[in-house]
Design a protein around this nucleic acid. Sequence first.
DNA 1: CGCTTTCCGTTATGTTATAACATACACCGC
DNA 2: GCGGTGTATGTTATAACATAACGGAAAGCG
Lengths: 160, 160
Amino acid sequence: MPSHALGFAAHDHSSCVKSALGTALDACAERGVQMTPVRKRALEILLENHSAMGAYDVLVRLDAEGLGSKPPVAYRALSFLVEQGFVHRIERLNAFIACAHPGDKHDPAFMICRTCGTVAEAQISSATLGASAAQSGFQIEQTVIEAQGLCPACQPEGTA
Amino acid sequence: MPSHALGFAAHDHSSCVKSALGTALDACAERGVQMTPVRKRALEILLENHSAMGAYDVLVRLDAEGLGSKPPVAYRALSFLVEQGFVHRIERLNAFIACAHPGDKHDPAFMICRTCGTVAEAQISSATLGASAAQSGFQIEQTVIEAQGLCPACQPEGTA
DNA sequence: CGCTTTCCGTTATGTTATAACATACACCGC
DNA sequence: GCGGTGTATGTTATAACATAACGGAAAGCG
Ligand SMILES: [Zn+2]
Ligand SMILES: [Zn+2]
Ligand SMILES: [Zn+2]
Ligand SMILES: [Zn+2]
């Protein structure tokens, strides 16, 4: 009975971490980029509980393991992971979270619980935004879609 | 020939500022909240050129007019304006922008030009996100939708 | 070996945001 | 007028987030 939640649902966490890590390693090999110890450990830390963490939170963990103590260490590793699509940045929280379905490049959407802070990654298309952009001639390269509200666990009983 | 752009289109700016300010004033009266000098001036500053400004940029302007020089002054005024829906916060830029169509409460969507920094507010529905949220039981209270890309003016000639 | 590239370590600083506390002022019932 | 109440301001200090810039280690390659 895994206690970690991926999004709002329980799941087999150890296999999920293993697979995410494997996917990342494979992608790195294929792309000719390096999954160095710092980068790998940063990804593992984010995968550990699927929660959004600030760069400094990650840094504290890295520091505890002797992998670096200065902000640039964390920011460099996180930038790499975001570039490679293994991790997403949540603008609203100034935080980072491991991708819930790595492997395919995508524009993520997030649901952020205002109460418990749990973050779930949703699969959505930004078609409506695309239509609006086309009208005005705007060329979309990347979208940030973040919804804030209440996750199932945090909703008052009668309100769901 | 007004030089300011609302979004990517030119428009009659002085009348637009006047009307936005009027709408805000009316709304305050109706809601029983106060449009104090600092708040009003902050809104005017943001309306001036329809561009996204950082809190400290606004603060510099306020300071120059003797309306306050310390960060909380700007943040309080901006928080008020955001709460009342006269101003939106752009998470991705850590910046603020006057609402392009105040009066009706709405979840704004933005198109942010990577090159010139121009920000346009779009009218879109977050229906797709809503459907996704409903499936997982998430109760959306607020959404942030921000697209980054190239505005018409910044696109290379043959690429539009 | 000399050269390049990539990653890492460190210093220093810049930028954004809020906690906490003190003061001013208007309004109201008395 | 006076004390209480609420809202808005002023001020200090610090928290939290992020990057510029420079030097050094290590790997790959002629
Ligand atoms: Zn998991
Ligand atoms: Zn993802
Ligand atoms: Zn205008
Ligand atoms: Zn708006």
